[in-house]
Amino acid sequence: MKLQKSTVIALCSVLEAAHEPGRQISSAGIAEKYGVSPHHLAKVLRRLGRAGLLESARGVGGGYRFSGNAKRVTLMDVIGLFEEMIVEAAGQREKAASTDVERAIAQVLGEIDETAKAVFKSITIATMLRLIERQNRVAGQSPPV
């Protein structure tokens, strides 16, 4: 499964910000860390802001902080903002399938979509943060953020 660049950046930004809820994250820092243009990142952050997941912090340096509920916001809530494909795909593909061959292919791809959706919907931001912590413990590293 491959997510669009904007989606991956959105996930990284949300996770970076949610790691320390009160803390302001610098967009310049995120852009540099994840090798993305400040312009592209700004667009992604605006979208997350409109969805109520991040809020921009005023003042010198400007930045963003997490404004969602990490225990309730799921990966799907973030991904769904950028990948309409995943949300809509199954229904659309089946509608577009006019032959038996296309219908069979649509059924298989639909199975993959349904599984992907169930995975994204069941993993909250809090669960992801714990996963990151666990990975770091295993690798004996300090937190990434």
């Binding site: 993993i123 909250t124 809090a126 996963l131």
Partner: peptide, 8 residues
Amino acid sequence: MTFYRSQG
């Protein structure tokens, strides 16, 4: 599912 995920 969310519960089990939260448990790692």
